[in-house]
Amino acid sequence: MIQLSAISRVFTMGDQEVRALNHIDLTITAGEYVSVMGPSGSGKSTLLNIVGLLDQPDSGTYLLENRDVTALSESEQARVRRERIGFIFQSFHLISRLTAAENIELPLILEGLSVAERQARVKAVLDQTGLADRANHRPAELSGGQRQRVAIARATILNPAVLLADEPTGNLDHKTGAEVVALLEKLHHAGTTVIVVTHDRELGGRAHRRIQMRDGEIVEDER
């Protein structure tokens, strides 16, 4: 489903060139549960950004569901992000002035769905994630675990093919982190491809496929 071939990404810092990704070849099939680990600066976040179409590779080709997505226009890429990809961030990135339900509703608004359909879908997701009684709370009134669950609900409400999580438990304590991981794995069991970038060996070890990166290259890929 995801086919990266000879992907390179170079950042220029001052007069120095930093190869964040160096000729990466990677194929991930639908429904896989993959963790990407490695030290800071190993290029794992850059890899995630490129897979999520937030960043463009300097060379190489990227096929998502057999389509060359690097060649798409900006608005077509936005559409792919909206409909096929879900993001989960370490710092949740909820909009603080909107309630939990409204945060979850954002992708539906961007997709242009009707109010009635939006409300029905948001209600269903709130029930599934056990957040029904928190629907009208703002992020500041939610616990860390609840915030991340809202973010996961938002990322998955349009049933994306790939879920990209960047340190999803990084800002959570052990117990709530475990709850979030359980939710991610539930989504994986439901058929979503899950890619988790993390420092956390325990979280990374739970994935069925574990990729190690160093200096912009994949050094280990075990299943």
Binding site: L54, S75, A78, R79, V80, R81, F87, L106, L110
Partner: peptide, 9 residues
């Protein structure tokens, strides 16, 4: 975030 959620320019 809006861009990540699929908002166009």
């Amino acid at each position: 975030l809006l861009k990540a959620l699929g908002a166009t320019r």
